[in-house]
Simulated assay, not measured.
Amino acid sequence: MNLIYEVISEEKIEYCRDLCNELMAFQKSKAHITPELFDSMNFDTRLVPSVKNAIHNYIVIVKDADKIVGYVYANISPKEVYSNSFATFFDLSSVEKQNVGCLSQFYIKEKYRKYGVGSILFKMSMNWLKQFDDVDDYFIYVSNGNEDALEFYKRKGFTVSHDILDGFITVLRSNQEFK
């Protein structure tokens, strides 16, 4: 295994299409609360709009030779982006600054898990997010049933803030240093 981590530009998000769609299928397979909500979630409805609505985007792909085996997507967005027709993801008044940081999507093919890939991608994302002085609050949204992801983020310094959509999504939050 010869893994290469590559930061890509927004113009190359198409590289993430297959893995993003795999992520949505994975989340649906884990979900025990309204899994049918994932039926309309895919690259075009999740990643593309998120990139367009963000002020700053950070996308890292992981390659094994020439095959993309994982990716992470983080962004800096106006806090108002997180109150929309789908849900209000957090109490906007609880965020003092205008912008928030979000680790928005994170997926590694199963064969490549447990080799530290997730920790590397997490650290790269958090280092990128921390460079913005206009952000103090960081969020991660974990779909129901994905206990491994939930525990991973808790080990990294995030705490559960609340659930939304009747438990469909768990909101994790941090305004501290990450591990």
Rank of each mutant, 00 (worst) to 15 (best):
L3F: 10
Y5Q: 07
E6K: 12
E6T: 15
E6A: 04
E6G: 06
V7M: 04
V7T: 14
E10Y: 06
E11D: 13
K12C: 12
K12A: 15
E14S: 14
C16M: 05
C16Q: 00
R17T: 13
C20V: 15
C20K: 00
N21I: 13
L23P: 01
L23I: 02
L23M: 07
A25Y: 11
A25F: 04
F26K: 02
K28N: 03
S29M: 09
K30G: 02
T34H: 13
D39Q: 03
D39P: 02
S40R: 07
F43T: 05
T45S: 14
R46A: 14
L47W: 01
P49W: 15
N53Q: 08
N53Y: 12
A54R: 01
A54L: 09
H56W: 05
N57M: 10
I59F: 03
I59N: 00
V60S: 08
V60C: 11
I61L: 10
I61S: 06
K63R: 13
A65T: 03
D66V: 02
D66M: 08
K67Y: 08
I68N: 02
V69T: 02
G70L: 01
Y71R: 01
V72S: 06
I76E: 03
I76T: 10
I76M: 09
S77G: 06
S77E: 06
P78V: 07
P78M: 06
P78E: 07
E80H: 14
V81K: 03
V81I: 13
S83P: 05
F86S: 05
F86C: 07
A87T: 07
F90R: 02
L92K: 13
S93P: 04
S94N: 12
V95T: 14
E96K: 15
Q98A: 07
N99A: 08
N99C: 11
V100C: 07
L103R: 01
L103S: 01
F106D: 00
Y107Q: 01
Y107D: 01
I108H: 05
E110Y: 03
Y112V: 09
Y112P: 04
R113G: 14
R113E: 09
R113C: 15
Y115K: 12
G116M: 06
G116F: 08
G118S: 09
I120N: 08
I120A: 09
I120H: 05
F122R: 04
F122P: 00
F122E: 03
K123F: 06
S125A: 12
M126T: 11
N127A: 09
N127K: 12
W128I: 03
L129Q: 01
K130Y: 13
K130F: 09
D133T: 04
D134V: 13
D134L: 11
D136F: 06
D137I: 10
Y138V: 09
Y141R: 09
N144G: 08
N144L: 02
G145S: 11
G145N: 12
K156P: 00
G157I: 04
V160Y: 02
S161M: 08
D163S: 15
L165G: 09
G167V: 10
F168W: 05
F168V: 11
I169Y: 00
I169Q: 00
V171A: 07
L172M: 10
L172K: 03
S174K: 09
S174G: 05
F178C: 13
F178I: 04
F178K: 14
